[in-house]
């Protein structure tokens, strides 16, 4: 077989490749068992996440948490800093009077 002949060389080499395909190295039973055991093992438990980190993630990160904190602070300020209540005694009467049937129903049980 002249080795300069590419086709012959390819065919000749192919006999080696064919032999390699026909006789692959076989894994040991120990390897097969180890791989299967690893597959059947429970997945590792997820790491414990601190409460603040979970809250931060739930609200969408630190910018969202900062916005929420600001909104809460403004709410507290509005609730405490106004000089007098938003509704006086006369308005409160109106609020009760617009639902008289509710007051009637409640009274009807007695």
């Amino acid at each position: 077989m002249p080795m300069s002949d590419d086709k012959h060389e390819a065919a000749w080499l192919e006999t080696f490749f064919e032999a390699a395909r026909a006789h692959p190295a076989a894994p040991s039973p120990a390897l097969m068992t180890a791989v299967l055991r690893a597959a059947e093992a429970p997945p590792p438990a997820p790491p414990r996440v601190p409460l603040m980190a979970r809250l931060r993630d739930a609200f969408g990160g630190w910018p969202a948490m900062a916005g929420l904190a600001t909104a809460a602070a403004v709410g507290v300020w509005i609730g405490t800093a106004l000089p007098e209540p938003a509704t006086g005694a006369s308005e409160a009467v109106w609020l009760v009077d617009i639902a008289p049937e509710l007051a009637f129903d409640l009274a009807g049980d007695f």
Binding site: P27, L31, A39
Partner: peptide, 27 residues
């Protein structure tokens, strides 16, 4: 496991030429 481990092991063996190392790589 049955389908892929022999293939992975055989490939590792062809690249390394060493059975023990090929088993570790396959695992």
């Amino acid at each position: 496991t049955l389908r892929l481990t022999p293939r992975v092991f055989a490939h590792a063996y062809r690249l390394l030429g060493n059975r023990a190392e090929a088993e570790e790589v396959a695992q």
